[in-house]
Design a protein around this nucleic acid. Sequence first.
RNA 1: GCGGGUGUGGCGGAAUGGUAGACGCCGGGGACUUAAAAUCCCCUGAGCUUUGCUCGUGCGGGUUCGAGUCCCGCCACCCGCACCA
Length: 835
Amino acid sequence: MTETRFDPSLADGRWQRAWDEAGTFTADSDSDKPKSFILEMFPYPSGRIHMGHVRNYTMGDVLARYKKMRGFEVLHPMGWDAFGMPAENAAMEKKVHPGEWTYANIEAMKKQLQGIGFALDWTREFATCDPDYYGHEQALFLDMYEAGLVYRRSSEVNWDPVDMTVLANEQVIDGKGWRSGAEVEKRKLDQWFLKITDFAEDLLEGLGELKDWPDKVRLMQENWIGKSSGLEFSFDLSNGEKLPVYTTRPDTIFGASFCAIAADHPIAQSLASDTKVAAFIEECKKGGTTAAELETAEKLGFNTGVTAKHPFTGEAMPVFIANFVLMDYGTGAVMGVPGHDQRDFEFATKYELPIARVVAKDVSEADAPMGDEAEPGDGVIVNSDFLDGLSVEDAKADVIAKAEEGGWGEGTTVWRLRDWGISRQRYWGTPIPIIHSPDHGPVPVPRDQLPVKLPEDIDFDTPGNPLERHPTWKHTTCPISGKPALRETDTLDTFVNSSWYFLRFASQPDNAPFDPQEIAKWMPVRHYIGGIEHAILHLLYARFWTRAMERIGKFEVKEPFDALFTQGMVTHETYALGDGSWLSPNEVRKNGADWIAIEDGAPVTAGRVVKMSKSKKNVVDPDAIIAEYGADAVRWFMLSDSPPERDLPWSQDGIEGCGRFVQRLWRLFQQFDLSAIGEDKALARKAHQAIVAVAEDIEALGFNKAVARIYELTGATEKAAPSESRNFAISTLMQLASPMMPHLAEEAWAKAGNAGLIADAAWPTHDPAMLVEDEVTIAIQHKGKLRDTITAPKGAAKEDLEALALASEKVQRSLDGAEVRKVIVVPDRLVNIVT
RNA sequence: GCGGGUGUGGCGGAAUGGUAGACGCCGGGGACUUAAAAUCCCCUGAGCUUUGCUCGUGCGGGUUCGAGUCCCGCCACCCGCACCA
């Protein structure tokens, strides 16, 4: 037989068309097969598919194809998370409408995805910027509104005083606006919120059920929700007011030496008639709103002159306005215990406030001096009157009990989780379907007027929200009184779009967001795959949204994602010239051991391997790679070597190796020999073992291990002489590799004379009797170190193994006549001789 | 600052507390070829006094007959932090 080369430039398209024409991957919700919903996080249509997408979708694709082979009806859809800031930026920079830009990107990226041969059900495709989608989203928003899960209050944003616009955190660079360069300020705006805190307990408890989520993600969510118990009580202030505070450390109450309140605390605001107070509050407004910025900023305080009376000692403690106290957490006021809280310690040091020890390692160390930092750890309470000698835990309970008896405070649960602010002062998002009526306040847009569509004729030449500035769009009438009224001009956070898209994939009727009966068929998503960067926000919002839908009676699903997998990034070496400017991989080449610039031969430093990014120019375009090596080689690369949860370093050598392996398999597939006779038991055993092992690896998403198994079976099959067993190994390899290299597998399957598509074929079956080895290798250790190995029949008796071990010449030499004190025998594994 | 993670040859990594380095890449040697490409075969953790021995999984301790794996304490790097998606 003449060997041919596998030509992906012909085969890839041929099989992609074949799948498309046959509707191979169209999910049938009426099928009586068991169902499996495989989902990868849908992409933002930024313009081009990048390697990170390819890796993400290849993993999901292998799972989807594998599940189909195992007899599942698989739903594996794709769509577009299409609202967002980049479209507005493009509008400003390139004078193109955000919608036009977005849909052009979608078209281009869809073509790219199709060229990789993903087993996607494109019949369910949608973009979140389709009025049809966001109209249903508006209806769901109104459902939540009617259920009392939506409210309005003022909240801080990053304000650019020059561009007169709200900035996203991303647009604040070193405390300055990214375009204007002006110092960013905090500014309060009335905004819409979703009551995710109503679900805090639920969301926390639900984590316990998510057995197939990574522990780290559950832990991150748990910490984010941040349930803490403590004491809420009020200090009597010298001005006659009461100051409610919340503390998680009531046990340290005798160590309190000051109180601190947020700059936007009502008491601070009430003192603002004093110009110095007002100036300090103004000072606190400087800077952005991110947690990292707030917590690393220098701790500043302003002594209000008001004092608070300690509930036990009666001592008067100063009340400060402080920039590190957040109005959003607890009561917006804290008692400062410098000895046992690091932030309080730094603050007390700066403002020369007393730092007392109230927790010590032991009672005898009650007078031990404090070091140069706080001691937040466990210990025994000291210098605390009736609490002395108690453990931290007991003292907490004791103080809470005393407060409740005395009626001046109570034990409470406080959550770190804050309500979800969903208002965005931007054009390219879902319009919030509310009308502000002069007589009736905010009124929902009547359902028959949905969707509230975005206007097309908008202007990005002046900064700010184009919806706000649009000449006519916001002018409407009050649905109740019919009088002139204004539309809400804020749009919804794009996280709202991605909080329910999976439901729309499962079911997309025209007249409703989804159909509960269809939801019941597909939900929850069996495998959800995406980046770890979504571990908290997106996943928490989607969990919340699903629970909210369940609570208001939309369906009976609580958790949207049964199993979650977070994949690593695709990285690449970086290349820099002497002046620090970056070069892309195709602008450099190796010159001996060094790198040089292709253009002028200038020396190039190969730097660290980091996430592919435009700024570092270490990006490789999937299309160029596919054009050169074919889709299967790229898919194979994405699955090889690195465990899927870790970063994958892209390399030219690596993709070339994958390209060679595709050809190597192709050659092997052509060696299927109908005239071959006889059995090759060792090879057959390897093939049967591989069927089981590759299945286990894929189900555990251990794609790199599945790949290694296929390499091993390939090597063994190549070396074997023709036999019926070898034919079996070849056809097994075709099937095992088909989820990963579907084009090659289809081509080989057809060439071998099989009817139908391998995509529709079943996973090969294994013979359990063929899995068991007859012989095993036993390691012989002396003093825990390997001295020899012996081959023994599987299941050999302990005594026999011990005797065989002691008979070994190498072992005897190592023993050197020493007395054997003990022999540990692990059947089928090892013998360890202790002297 | 807070929360989470990662660390094993030149590189990516494998290893239910039981033979560390499977498998792949790079590199070296050889075969085939007029030559190259492609392909195939062999070698490839370090060191040494090389039938073999010693060391070796970020660093320092510990538990165990036995530790990459478990425990304690460090270090380095990466990710997230609520308006990036």
